[in-house]
Write a protein that binds this DNA or RNA. Structure first.
Lengths: 123, 123
DNA sequence: TAGGAACCTGACATTGACGTCAGAGGTAGC
DNA sequence: GCTACCTCTGACGTCAATGTCAGGTTCCTA
């Protein structure tokens, strides 16, 4: 498929796809005239990249771990980084859950204030 | 306390604290010579700001919701945004949990590859 | 009262993942 | 072969939260 279709199917902009290639995260075949051509696997690859970006992992780190994702083999130092990223994701989840509690407290307070007509400052 | 102490106690840089003030997220008293003075409440305020930033909420949105956090009262449109942010945080958590599963698959595959000496590409 | 640490304002620099534009060439349906 | 749309490279722009630097003032301790 061409880049426009890949963009549409992944929900990622054309510009972003070219950026991924620039960062060596995504390869493409080229047609005779130089246009990029992608196979089906590119779709899952792009979604994976987006997911890792979403976890705050930099393109350099993604680049390190991608071959490992494909082959299943990780050098020890890559393995260590993978585990480090795992911890970081766990921490992010915990922090977001704490934030969720905070937001819920605020929302609950405001709801009660609306119902009773009296402000109820936290704590 | 002065800005340096607040920075140390919150783990946030002095520059960031001044930025928060610039964005009206954090107020300070000023000494006769113009130096910022903070009370104890500033510590929790800064931590709250950091938490909201961590959830990907912009300073403009934080600014909107802060009075509500303090007073417990939210105008309807602020309330709507609060609920919107809540949903966004929930979604982020779900996505990170999915990412965690992916990472675990990769780590498990690499661990097995290490144990058996054979690469085990996913799926 | 000396001197170093901490503080001030103002301004420009940085970072990463793109957006956007220009100018040129490719592709597909009619 | 016309037309509308897609794609190419290259380069500069953006955005938000900070870093960093300069040049000057204030604070604290000896």
């Amino acid at each position: 498929m061409r880049i426009g279709e890949l963009a549409e199917r992944t929900g990622v902009s054309v510009r972003a796809l070219r950026y991924y290639e620039e960062q060596k995260l995504l390869a493409s075949e080229r047609s005779g005239s130089g246009q990029r051509r992608y196979d089906e696997k590119a779709v899952t690859r792009v979604k994976l990249i987006q997911q890792l970006y979403g976890a705050g992992i930099s393109s350099a780190s993604i680049l390190e771990m991608l071959p490992c994702v494909v082959t299943g083999v990780a050098a020890p130092e890559v393995m260590a980084k993978l585990i480090g990223h795992r911890s970081s994701v766990v921490r992010q989840i915990e922090e977001l859950q704490e934030t969720l509690l905070q937001l819920d407290r605020v929302i609950a307070g405001a709801t009660e204030a609306y119902a009773t007509g009296k402000p109820c400052p936290p704590q």
